[in-house]
Write a protein that binds this DNA or RNA. Structure first.
Lengths: 327, 327
DNA sequence: ATGAAAGCGCTAACAC
DNA sequence: GTGTTAGCGCTTTCAT
């Protein structure tokens, strides 16, 4: 392993000068050149562990998400990564798998590695950020609010729930069910509230009790819920899916039963990135996941740079794409 | 920031003893207890930067992949993560975006951060691993071979191409096209070779020249290629997709034209994790992506532990799921 | 079993 | 503008 001392002696300068060259402080052109050549000759790579130890920071940010296999989160990760790497930061992607203990392990690692900041889509509203916040490191919440007073970027979930439901009403459906994520996650609760609101506005509040289901934000849970709904004495003629994977699960079950949309109406809060359906069969309230990641990363970088204004929350709206077909 | 010195003085022991407690060396039970309590009281987290600097390693492995938005790679990442975190390692997910310069930046970071090892799905066969290999750190190649003599885990791509094509022949299709990834990526080339082989075995080698297309491994490229094939004077009656995203793109175009499978036959090398199609309409050669990640991670951990046997290559076979319907 | 002390590679005063 | 030097927090001989 070559160090700045090796480079320094080869270039005939002091270690401090080598450090300065690599950190942009003023050094005379000749020495800069000498150092660069020596570094290249020796294939020198600065030791980040030493640098982090000395400066108490590292150009790394942690992105903690609950499901690495959900395209919504990978799209968001993509946005974070683009902004971060542009600014010279690396992103460590931490998959909490919705498990509080995995999540807190990753948070401890972020502290121990002196990472510059954290962007987190919390596994639950009980997520404990005390330790990381105590270190003074900035934290930005994405997708889901936390019980802390933090910068955050969230979707307009209630409005998305309303828009999804209304698109189905406009298409002529009447008995509209809802399958959402766990009730204790605010995104899921808000979207469900939007559905109830839209049902009430349409004079269908009587359906709420029978047609509301809370599953996981995953394909399997949604499949079970959809099957349960179809087994009802009076099954729904349409369904609002609380996220992308729930949409996939619901549509899978419908397709297997020969009820491919628009035979039964489907509206999804989120996108279906790898769908093979006709684009007009399903209503979508597309959520700008990449933009959420970009926004969160920018906010975090501002905080890292020392910005100390009060916590801000940015709310992003989904874009409704109404199914043109109806039954 | 609390250090081992703080913990040591509170526990009434030396810093060395605190270190020993956290590293499993022999310490008397009473002192262990005292140290643990002091550490808990002070909310002590060991400083990894200092540890890395001293030991010249860190319990972090880099996973470099070309497309974080492709479910194939996230599934693989999931496998790597499960094995690694089980063993106390963190995984830094690095998205090279198929760009050699982003890729080499991440490789430099892996060196500079003293990461224990690298698992890489190389952006191209020109990927340069000289520097990282020169540090003596283990590297495992996944999905794609490199020009180095390394441990690797790859799929049986040629066989997968053959199986996909044969499933279409068995279903009664005759004019079978192929859309694959970039010709200079060996996985893509091997799958294409499998398709040619199957065509030749079926006496259809005359179709090869007109019906072979190389796109990107993404949805958009596949869409364009599919449209081109359909515009042919004698369009194909079926198509083999070289990976999951190509399958999505091809099926999207077909669906938009009212040619939903099995009207035109489709076989995909890979899975369609979020498909909403009837499961019997499309043939799949499912690739065990998670298992690939698991295997690669295990091999890497063995190398990190000091295993010095000659380089091994593990070949994983896809599992064919034949479409039951034909036209 | 435990402590004292050196040193990993780097940066940031401070002196010149 | 450049060199000298102390020290970031940890692990690890080497004594005891």
């Amino acid at each position: 392993m070559t160090t700045i001392y090796d480079v320094a002696s080869r270039a005939g300068v002091s270690p401090a000068t080598v450090s300065r060259v690599f950190n942009g402080t003023k050094v005379s052109p000749e020495k800069v050149e000498a150092v660069r050549r020596a570094a290249a000759d020796l294939d020198f790579t600065p030791n980040r562990a030493a640098r982090s130890l000395r400066t108490q920071t590292s150009e790394v940010i942690a992105l903690v998400i609950p499901d690495i296999e959900n395209p919504y989160f990978t799209e968001m990760a993509r946005g974070v990564e683009d902004v971060a790497s542009e600014a010279g930061y690396s992103v460590v992607l931490c998959n909490s798998d919705s498990q509080p203990d995995k999540e807190s392990t990753y948070l401890q690692i972020a502290i121990a590695e002196h990472m510059s900041g954290v962007i987190i889509a919390a596994a639950s509203d009980a997520t404990n950020l005390d330790s990381i916040l105590a270190t003074g490191r900035p934290v930005v919440a994405v997708d889901r609010a936390t019980r802390y007073d933090l910068d955050g970027v969230v979707m307009a979930n209630r409005e998305a729930g309303i828009a999804a439901t209304e698109s189905l009403i406009a298409a002529g459906y009447r008995r509209i069910a809802y399958i959402g994520g766990p009730e204790d996650i605010d995104t899921a609760a808000d979207r469900a509230a939007g559905w109830r609101q839209a049902l009430t506005d349409a004079g269908r509040e009587a359906d709420i009790a029978a047609l509301q289901r809370f599953a996981t934000f995953r394909v399997d849970g949604a499949r079970a819920a959809m099957e349960e709904l179809l087994a009802l004495p009076e099954p729904p003629d349409a369904v609002v899916a609380g996220n992308n994977l729930i949409g996939v699960g619901a549509i899978q079950v419908l397709t297997e039963r020969g009820l491919t949309p628009p035979a039964v109406g489907v509206a999804v809060v989120g996108s279906l990135p790898f769908t093979t359906l006709s684009p007009t069969a399903v209503s979508l309230v597309r959520l700008p996941a990449r933009h959420m990641g970009v926004t969160a990363a920018r906010m975090l970088l501002e905080r890292i740079a020392g910005d100390a204004q009060p916590a801000r929350t940015v709310v992003l709206r989904g874009e409704t794409q109404r199914a043109s077909a109806n039954r």
